[in-house]
Amino acid sequence: MIASAPITWYQACRTIDVPKNGGVCVKIREEQVALFHFTRTDTWYATQNECPHRNQMALSRGMIGSQGDIPKVACPFHKKTFSLETGECLSGDECSIKTYPVKIENGWVFIGMDE
């Protein structure tokens, strides 16, 4: 068995606070987390809010979508795109973003972060 790092689940916001097929920024501890909701498949993703390209706190304001089967977000600044599953940059840059697990309970969104 692989021991996984202990995760703390943080209550982020209500599901209805997140726009359809879009994102919001959540403040957790002192960190900024981007939270996205894909309404057609009802899937949720969370990543760091900072775009590593020019260190802009902006990913939550980006357009989301898919490339093939990969769900992605495009930074509003220079349209670099990142996989929401792996955090990998899909526009060919070296940089990548952190991703976090998300769970929904009773109409509330929870984001899991390491201790």
Partner: peptide
Amino acid sequence: YDEVLSQLGSGHGCETCKP
């Protein structure tokens, strides 16, 4: 947009087709 995607497109869209 959502209806256009459902009726005429596929996937989740992207930063090109959305605008």
